[in-house]
Design a protein around this nucleic acid. Structure first.
Lengths: 245, 245
DNA sequence: CGGATGCTTGATGTATCTCAAGACGTGTGG
DNA sequence: CCACACGTCTTGAGATACATCAAGCATCCG
């Protein structure tokens, strides 16, 4: 376990562990992924563009990335965040073309896994296969919650809800300290993810700061009044489908 | 093929056929689903509520339904439409609890399929398994496009984009006539799906009618200028992942 | 005929966007 | 080491898109 704690697939192992208890064999199988090339990228660059057909499966190890979609006239919407432990494109074998782009938000490191190696790892491991399918459904459920947020929640509720969601996801992979976490993204990114203007995000954050809900300083987000924030944003954690918290 | 055309799994067969060519064996396997109980429901009622753990897999045969999520204070967001040929909850075996509700929009008919029977059908049919996994990814991709729409597109673009999307999906299952299709939902539903107020939907539709883009009469939607509507709404069909159109 | 249901329209207020500019911190080249 | 550019955050002023409230019709159906 100690050795595992320092391993690069640790976030993935922890994340899948929120769904089901994995045994040592599964853990060893996942470790085989670490033989894949480890890529290092700076913030604010594309990993893949819409329309491409990626030939590798990417597993994020550190840093934040995102899925985004853009329109011909430049408008852009972030449709999901990738945090350590997340797969960016597990289904390269099924879909022939990406319907979205993938970009880095901070400096990131990720594995580029050969789909065949990936298949070898999950072959004959129904529990692992099941856990990875869960990961897909997990991402899909988050998308639905975002639709609810953008469609119905007020700007403050939207931002607050996102902060709580990120807290739970980062906690799952062991990247929180109390109710604080590393928060490498800009207000511009928050605007793109929430369908708001940069200016309005700024004002809304100011308001939330004034209300003693959160604090963002030095690339670090601290949720000051966690219970109140959960209540205000009407956060119901069932959509994360963490069987064990 | 003629017999199939009248069969209740025909929409499903056609839909999966947009992803890959299925053979007679696959078709026969799907037909086995027709031994499941066929349920009939009136418009505007719940099929399942958030928090429940459904014990059946539902396959919509006729009519329209939707996934929706609601907030404690009554706000509600439709996060997806179910059209004939769609599965409502293929993953009952993975997730223990629904994170959304399912409701009818028109009168519908659907099969309630026993998960074990379902497993029997796909066991040893890797092509079918693959096509069904594609269906899940298809639904997920639509959710992403909706995020882009609600987050970035203007109300008219949003509605127009939805109309084009529904056209392609209905055409895939053989339910269009020219650029027209049965359209059983209310302006209120359109508002709930697009994060708009009912009044604003009404005005926007009026505008689109005036511009000669669409026409809705008698539960029937007709797209008058299909190419212009596609262009205005910046419709890029790649997210539907229909390999063959 | 009376009650539902859905569509349409007007008046009004406000939330949010856009444009514009300044403050601040950080890294870079002279 | 300073000057400067750049990215990010912050704030103001003004325009407008959109929501809310309120009411009037048309259609359908028991």
């Amino acid at each position: 376990m100690e050795a595992m704690a320092r391993s690069c697939v640790d976030p993935l192992f922890r994340l899948l562990g929120c769904y089901m208890v994995l045994d040592a064999n599964d853990r060893d199988a996942l470790s085989a992924l670490e033989e894949s090339p480890l890529i290092d990228k700076i913030a604010r660059c594309d990993i893949a563009r819409e329309g491409e057909n990626p030939h590798v499966i990417r597993l994020l190890v550190s840093g934040w990335a995102c899925r985004y979609k853009d329109l011909p006239d430049g408008r852009r919407q972030i449709v999901g965040f990738f945090l350590p432990g997340d797969f960016c494109d597990m289904n390269v074998a099924i879909l022939s073309e990406l319907d979205h782009s993938i970009g880095t938000l901070s400096r990131v490191r990720y594995y580029e896994i050969d789909p065949e190696r990936f298949q070898d790892v999950i072959d004959c491991r129904p529990r692992l296969t099941r856990a990875l399918l869960w990961h897909e459904l997990f991402i899909s459920a988050i998308q639905r919650e975002w639709l609810l947020s953008i469609g119905q929640r007020s700007p403050a509720e939207r931002l607050g809800h996102l902060f709580v969601e990120l807290y739970f996801r980062l906690k799952a992979v062991g990247l929180t300290e109390g109710h604080s976490y590393y928060f490498p993204i800009t207000q511009h990114n928050l605007a793109e993810a929430n369908g708001l203007s940069l200016v309005h995000v700024n004002r809304t954050l100011k308001e939330m700061r004034r209300d003693g809900l959160i604090e963002i300083t030095d690339r670090k987000l601290r949720i000051i009044d966690f219970d109140r924030l959960k209540q205000i944003t009407m956060f119901n954690s069932n959509y994360l489908h963490f069987n064990r918290e």
